[in-house]
């Protein structure tokens, strides 16, 4: 549709304001990362009085940052992939099929979002321990436990959200495909899934960042070898000093892979339903 001048003006104003809100804290993080520690803890200055890149060098040896980065990438990537597959299947069953227990299942899954996360902490550790003792699969302290945990924590959200996305696609779309003899699931996977690609990407981003920033469970379920970034960042605060500048520098560096990933996927966020795909 044609964009009038006044529309463009409103858009410019709104986006400028939002950009300002977004940038201010990011700028504080950025500028702090280039200051010596004594300036970070002193009065705020818009520009560093003493510009230093020392934090970006020092941070790698203050904590094993590279190892934490690697751990986080493994855990979050795998948990995201698994959660998406599981959630897509479940959301399809919930949004498109009729079966006994459907509502109970969807409400059960939803109810997990109503219980404070912190309360899951000890029971989960307990259950992992029981699983290890009885069937010998170790889950405490290794990648597997954390991957399963993050995957599961994202599934309810992802399932419900995808259900919402699937629900907005008319049934006729896959019914048309089924006339060609494809199964319901096949039609769904081939026809509906590509249409809701933005939704799947969005849910994937959500799932990924869920694990990327999670601290509480990672702190209990990891060892020094499997520790993830968000937990590891806390180690910039030691008994002796708190290296705020290195912590900020590290946050920026670890956000780079995420930033690149965003740049790559953002296109898919806005390329779902080409005009006219649904009539």
């Amino acid at each position: 549709m044609r964009e009038t001048l006044s529309f463009k003006a409103v858009r410019a104003v709104v986006l400028t304001v939002i950009t300002g809100i977004v940038l201010l804290p990011l700028y504080v993080v950025l500028v702090s990362s280039f200051k010596p520690l004594r300036d970070v803890s002193g009065p705020f200055t818009w520009l560093p009085e003493t510009f230093t890149i020392e934090p970006y060098i020092q941070m790698w040896s203050t904590i094993p940052l590279a190892k934490y980065l690697f751990n986080s990438l493994i855990v979050t990537t795998l948990s995201t992939a698994l959660a998406l597959v599981i959630a897509v299947l479940a959301a399809f069953a919930l949004a498109r099929l009729r079966w006994r227990g459907q509502r109970s299942f969807s409400l059960l899954v939803l109810s997990t979002q109503m219980f404070p996360g912190i309360l899951f902490l000890l029971p989960l550790y307990l259950i992992f321990t029981q699983i290890q003792r009885t069937i010998g699969i170790q889950l405490n302290g290794n990648y597997a436990g954390l991957i399963i945990t993050y995957m599961t924590f994202s599934v309810p959200f992802a399932t419900w959200m995808l259900m919402g996305f699937f629900a907005s696609i008319p049934d006729e779309l896959e019914e048309a495909a089924m006339i060609d003899g494809t199964t319901r699931l096949g039609a769904f996977l081939r026809v509906v899934l590509p249409v809701v690609r933005p939704g799947i990407v969005a849910v994937g981003v959500f799932t990924f960042l869920n694990g990327w920033g999670e601290v509480l469970f990672a702190s209990v379920l990891t060892t020094s070898d499997t520790r993830t970034l968000a937990v590891g960042l806390q180690a910039f605060s030691s008994q002796v000093d708190v290296r705020w500048n290195e912590m900020m520098a590290a946050s920026i560096v670890i956000s780079l892979p995420v930033l690149i990933a965003f740049l790559l996927v953002q296109r898919h966020l806005v390329q779902g339903l080409a005009a006219g795909a649904v009539k």
């Binding site: 902490l121 000890l122 550790y125 992992f128 321990t129 029981q130 405490n140 209990v220 020094s224 806390q234």
Partner: peptide, 21 residues
């Protein structure tokens, strides 16, 4: 051995105590 930061450690000890692991 494993060096723990104090921030995370308390919950970890609790986990160990309650599970025996």
């Amino acid at each position: 051995f494993e060096v723990n930061t104090w921030a995370d450690y308390y919950n970890k000890v609790l986990g160990a105590v309650s599970s025996g692991e």
